[in-house]
Simulated assay, not measured.
Amino acid sequence: MSHTAHIPSHRKPRRSASKLALRAGVAGGVLSTIAVAGAAGPAIADPVTETIEMPTLTSGLSTTVAQSAEATQQVALDLELQAQENAAAAKAAKVAKKAKAEAVREAEAKEKAEAKERAEAEAKERASRDTERTTLSGYSAGSDSSADSSSSAPATGSAASVVAFLKAQLGDAYVMGATGPNSWDCSSLVQAAFRTVGVDLPRVSQDQSLAGTQVGTSNLQVGDILYWGGAGSAYHTGVYIGDGQYLDAANPGKGVVIQDLSGYPASGAVRVL
């Protein structure tokens, strides 16, 4: 036996043919793949050079979103403001309606009170006239004859002007407290008639019965102021126009009329012309 028989050999083991063939095939496949990729590389690479500007798109989108949010907020504010305005308008209309209704109620109440006051005053005046008429009925015949025998000559000068004014008001309404031009009470008509000739008389019957000179009803002249009731407390006045007649704003039922003294004799008379 050789002295080297037990020493391992340093030779590399011989590869088998099958393994070599396998490795050769793998290597060939890899080289083929590289070759194909190399050949196809230039045709695929061209489109890659076109880039998409993503930052610009993203910035524009952000601006649009912000504007949309701002517009939405503005719409919400506008709707809220409109709702507030509508509520305020509705409240104001309600207050105005209530105030109008209250004003109407107050006006109606005032009108009723005034109507009642006028009716009471007229009733009181009628009652006073009736009382005075009853009191004077005992000597009415004498008064009537005196009046008839008073001056029947046509009025001239200031007296004629007074009578002309009074006759121009015939048919006007009687309204307590009225002073013309289409409605009067007794004393306002007398006052207005004498004002046309420059005579300034007091406003009320009581004071007119004290104006000028007291004359008896048996010596009347055209233009004398007649009064019913006591001097200083008279409740009615008129003007003597001759022929036993006088003109006055009688009452709401008659208005401004010409009447006979025989039907309602006067208590007294004053002369201012």
Rank of each mutant, 00 (worst) to 15 (best):
G28D: 03
A168D: 12
L273V: 11
V65K: 04
A159T: 08
T72D: 06
A24C: 07
N219W: 10
T213I: 11
V222K: 13
A69D: 04
P154F: 07
E50F: 03
V162S: 03
Q206D: 07
G212W: 03
T217R: 11
E114Y: 12
A211S: 08
S262Y: 06
G25N: 09
Y174N: 00
E108K: 15
Y174E: 07
S150G: 07
G29F: 11
A90D: 07
A92W: 07
L57Y: 11
V175Y: 05
L31I: 14
G230K: 09
V272G: 05
V65S: 12
A164G: 11
L136G: 06
R271K: 07
A92E: 04
D243S: 15
G157V: 07
S233K: 05
Q84K: 15
A87F: 02
A93V: 06
E70T: 06
S161I: 09
K110E: 13
A109F: 05
E102G: 08
V163A: 11
Y227V: 06
V36C: 04
D243Y: 15
F165V: 02
T135H: 02
A231Q: 13
E132K: 03
Q73F: 08
L210S: 10
Q67V: 09
P42N: 03
A160K: 09
G216A: 06
Q82K: 14
E50S: 15
G229A: 07
A39S: 08
W184I: 03
E102V: 15
V104W: 05
L166E: 03
L189R: 04
S9C: 11
L77I: 14
D207A: 14
N251Y: 02
S188G: 03
Q206V: 05
S183G: 00
R195L: 08
Y240C: 03
N219A: 13
T56V: 13
S137G: 03
T179F: 01
V272C: 09
L79E: 10
K91F: 15
R133G: 01
S187D: 00
A90W: 04
T51K: 08
